[in-house]
Design a protein around this nucleic acid. Sequence first.
DNA 1: TAGCATTTAGGACTAGGTATTAAAATGAGG
DNA 2: CCTCATTTTAATACCTAGTCCTAAATGCTA
Lengths: 188, 188
Amino acid sequence: MRLTKKERQSYLSQAFEQNPFLTDEEVAKKFHVSIQTIRLDRLELGIPELRERMKHMAEKKFDHVQSLSPNEVIGDVIDLQLHKSGISLLEISTEHVFERNQIARGHILFAQANSLAIALADWKVALTGNASIRFVRPVRLGEKCIAFANVAEAHDSRLHVGVQTKVQEEIVFQGDFEVYRVGDDKGN
Amino acid sequence: MRLTKKERQSYLSQAFEQNPFLTDEEVAKKFHVSIQTIRLDRLELGIPELRERMKHMAEKKFDHVQSLSPNEVIGDVIDLQLHKSGISLLEISTEHVFERNQIARGHILFAQANSLAIALADWKVALTGNASIRFVRPVRLGEKCIAFANVAEAHDSRLHVGVQTKVQEEIVFQGDFEVYRVGDDKGN
DNA sequence: TAGCATTTAGGACTAGGTATTAAAATGAGG
DNA sequence: CCTCATTTTAATACCTAGTCCTAAATGCTA
């Protein structure tokens, strides 16, 4: 026997969820019913047409791309003594965390520390060479991360910077950065 | 005077990049030319029609959703064998670079590698513990970074992942990540 | 077998295009 | 100023993947 309406609609929801790019025609063939039946089903189930589904996904993706591209330096540098030390502050907000568990993504903490390390160097072009880092404990949504950077070694074209990030006196991240200078111009 | 063809086409590309949801009609009004002109322009510039653009974006988004829960990955994961290896692609665009020198910020490369390393772990909650990284050479605007990740050691709650990022066969970044599991649930 | 839900069919209309052909408008050079 | 090429506009037929609406054909059941 052919499926009942309910059964069909149930499989239908699944099918569209699994592959949102299905046209009504494809689905109609799959279930051996007419295209009109599928359209009635979509109407009843509140499933929008293919083009609307794609539009939605595209919009979501677009939002994403935008929020994912923070050109700014990550964290607010609140104190900076060139070639000596610096402090940066970052409050973990929703765009910094994994949706699932509200834990900050590793590269966010890294970015804060890295930005600060580079800011310490008073060079036109400063880049990170090597780095060794340790995520001591997970940081959660809403926590305020304070990164303390100190220059351990200073050469004329290289800087060794140690960074410790704390949440309320508790160390959450530690890193050693080797920052180097490109070209020979000094200044900013 | 009205814009020349070249000027118009240059602005056009920008406009579509900035807002891919523009219809030809809207753009035509914006530039005070006919809809046909815009269509010729798109043809010459190789810009697909609105629906195709949306489809593309939707497909990209869908890819992500399948490989990992969304918006948690920087770069496009194009191949993934859990607990074994993975490949991620990232084209360096303007929002990834220092304005001054068009060089990609370190944390962008780190984020790509880190995201990939975490994607490799088939765990509900996976976090980065330690990492040791090396930025071999600066990466510039427009370059396509391909990160290759391989699991070096696999324990039941820890993974050692080596990542090499290349631009056209040339290594630009290298990193070792120690990813660990939180909680005891396996699976996704 | 009447009455209901369910399914199918058909036609008109839509957005946002492609593809093609043709006619204008414009600009530059001799 | 005329001519030729480039550029722009127009007009038409066609496409997909639908919507919305009306109507007819089934199927099931009391």
